[in-house]
Amino acid sequence: MLEARLEQSSVLKKVVDAIKDLVQDCNFDCNDSGIQLQAMDNSHVALVAMHLKTEGFALYRCDRNIALGINLVSLQKVLRAAQNEDVMTLKAEDSPDALSLVFENSENDRISEYDLKLMDIDQEHLGIPETEYGATVKMPSAEFQRICRDLSLLSESVAIEATKEGIKFSCTGDIGKGAVTLRQNPNVEKPELGTTIELQEPVALTFSLKYLVNFCKASGLSNTVTISLSNEVPLLIEYEMEHGYVRFYLAPKIGD
């Protein structure tokens, strides 16, 4: 059986907020390394991979591998009943038809108990190869979100170019064009506010802004985001948590 306790409900709430617009139904795979999820969007353009590691749980017990088939819209309805600071306990049997969720406030005088019906989801898992990326950029997640939102008002797609000068996001649309260039600028006192660029080779790729704006819904998970790019391979956008991550992969646009 599974028994997993999070000190703060906000962790799972933020994870679900981050991915619910990309995927609807997905398996939460529970095993002795924690809770993992891998799912593609309907059009097979993007893939999300999430891992909440056991170290992030106040209590974690999972004797066997258990797949929790969850509709994320339904899960979000239940999670709405949890306050951010509530302790959350997830419980499921070995072959569960429901997931039990218990939310307790810090004063220990309120206990909320919910059951979420589970589904059978036949999900394909993709092997993600180890990749040496041509460029890896670490920057404030809020800044990346702002750039994607601003450019999405002008165009459907964005060109991302990483060179030794910096990383440039540019787009062209019906009303005009726009570009934002970030130069390497490490912040010694507050590293989370700085931008660092590791460059092996120059990279230039084009991506759909609709997806990037969607990924930015994970900004609440981390102050920083890591963007990894190589020519002609999917973009990797990673939000690292204290004990886990949410990673998004996005297939580039092709041809010209």
Partner: peptide
């Protein structure tokens, strides 16, 4: 015009 790539052409099924 540009087309949208498919993630499954980069990552193989396990």
């Amino acid at each position: 015009a540009t087309g949208q790539g498919n993630i499954m052409s980069f990552f193989q099924k396990k």
